[in-house]
Structure formats: C-alpha cells, structure tokens
Design a protein around this nucleic acid. Structure first.
Length: 272
DNA sequence: CTAAGGACCTGTCGGC
DNA sequence: TGCCGACAGGTCCTTA
C-alpha cells in the first residue's frame, strides 16, 4: 500500500496524537509479520514516553524520551496505523497494539503481513536501516548521485529508482508517475540516460512526492491515514492504473506492461 | 559484481 | 452463486 507519501502522511497525522504519551503495554497478536516480532519488544519499550516519530524511507521510527531505543514500523504492502479508543472493537488483522496512557491505542492493521515491527537500539542498530540509499527529498539526492549509481547498469531505469539502496521511498505508483513527468521510457537502460534526463527525473521524483504528501498520499483502494481519512493524490495520477485510458497530454492510450513483475504504466508517445 | 525470479501473505475482482 | 486465477501500494533472499 504505502509509498513514501503515505508513510509521511501517516507520520504527520500520528505524531501530534501520540507525542508525550506513555506506552503502557504492547500486545502482539500474531508472532510474526515479515519477520518475527522481537520478544523483547514489550519489555524494552513499556513505560517509555513517546518523544516523536521520525521517518527513514518507508520506515517509521518511534523515538522515546530519555531512551535511545527506537521502535521501527514498516507498513509493507497492506499495513496501516490507526489511533483508536482502547475499547474499540479489534478488527481482524490488528496485529500489534500499543496501549497508551490516555486510553487510546495505536493499532497496526496489516492483512498481508508484509509489514514489520522491529527494534533499533544502540547495541544492535537494525541492519535494514544501514543499507538504505538517499532520501529523495534531501539535497543529497541529485542528478549526479543517480547517474553515479546507474553508470554501466543495464537494468531498467524504473528498477533503479525503485531500488532502496539507491534512493528510498519510491514505489510502483510514483516511479511510474515520475517517469511520465520526465518523459522517460521506464524500460530504458538505467545507464543510458542523458545528463538532462537524470536531472529531469530527479526533479520529477521530488516534485511528485512533495505534491502527493500535500494531498495526503494516494488512496487507491484502502489507504486511510491514522485519523481515518483517504488521500487525494489519485486524481492527480497521470498513468498509474490508467491502462487504455487516453494520455492527459497527447491522448495516446496509456499502456500497461509488466517489468520486474510489477505493473508498469506509461504513455508510448510521451515517453519515447 | 549484476540481473532475474521466488518467496512471504490475504483479500478482491473479473471471467466462466 | 461459486470456483479459480490474476493481481495488489514492498523488498529481501536465492539463484544464475
């Protein structure tokens, strides 16, 4: 479900509701999501006061006051976080519950269980965070950086921008949209873009992610932020999920093809 | 080293 | 109505 804009939307909605609250209890209702949920989790974090929520790529990092331990949450493909009254009925697939001291819960709902709940401590910094590439909205993510990673690579450019070791947070929707905005064929070998194309692509990624965040992310089927509201970026999508519909720029029918087992949408005329 | 494919899961939708 | 296959917003790991 969530790419960077949806994760950031979640973070922004959640943070003011939970900052300063104390975690009374953590209940794990299923033993593993993508990975086993650490047994230490509850012992390590209970009684901790939430300081804030940071984001790195698509990971949410809950930080605590006066403690270095951090709770990592990844929403995978179908995960979402919601704040509810602690007496509210549990839904199917509410897998992890953080009970706060204000009679409210943060509940992780994740039908497909591709998400993750992990611990990051000074003693054992989580390896998944160590290998991540540039934050797309930071200045560090530049045309030069993208070009250097793509040098001599024959993989499709779409695959490159979805590679979290190069740049984090760009998933299938925004990869398609950014390539359309930059006028680049998703299948073009990553190493064969011109300098101008790297620049166009990098600025398109930044622009589109920012715009999507402003609109609360993309609700395709079921994404809701922690307050239960959908995102409005769907109406801004130019190619994603628009197979056989006319390109908004030139009227050519949008095509869909599978690239690396992911549906890829593009305009054969605008992205030559 | 790079690139491609499988794996992990459940839910939903379209076609027959 | 029911069954079956295809597909879904992610990404690590194995294999070639």
């Amino acid at each position: 479900m969530p790419e960077l804009p949806e994760v950031e939307t979640t973070r922004r909605a959640l943070q003011p509701m939970v900052s300063g609250k104390t975690i009374d209890r953590i209940t794990t209702r299923c033993p593993k999501l993508r990975w086993p949920i650490p047994a230490m989790l509850s012992d390590q974090l209970t009684r901790g006061q939430i300081n804030g929520i940071k984001r790195r790529g698509k990971y949410l990092l809950f930080t605590l006051k006066d403690r270095p331990d951090r709770l990592l949450v990844h929403l995978g493909m179908s995960g979402s976080l919601r704040v509810t009254d602690s007496h509210a009925d549990l839904r199917k697939h509410d897998h992890v519950i953080l009970s706060l001291n204000d009679q409210r819960d943060i509940r992780l709902h994740d039908p497909r269980r591709f998400g993750a709940v992990l611990l990051d401590t000074p003693d054992s910094p989580h390896p998944l965070l160590q290998k991540l590439g540039a934050e797309p909205l930071d200045d560090e993510f530049s045309a030069e950086l993208l070009k250097s990673h793509c040098k001599n690579r024959r993989m499709a450019i779409k695959t490159a921008i979805m590679n979290a070791q190069i740049v984090v947070g760009v998933g299938n929707i925004y990869a398609c949209e950014a390539l359309f905005a930059a006028g680049i064929d998703p299948q073009k070998p990553a190493g064969k873009l011109s300098d101008d194309e790297y620049a166009q692509l990098v600025s398109a990624i930044k622009r589109i992610l920012k715009q999507a965040i402003e609109q609360g992310g993309t609700t395709l089927r079921d994404f809701l932020n922690p307050s239960g509201n959908p995102g409005y970026f769907k109406q801004t999508l130019n190619v994603y999920d628009r197979a056989d519909l006319p390109c908004r720029t030139c009227g050519t029918l949008i095509r869909k093809r599978v690239l690396n087992q992911r549906s890829t949408y593009y305009c054969p005329h605008c992205q030559s």
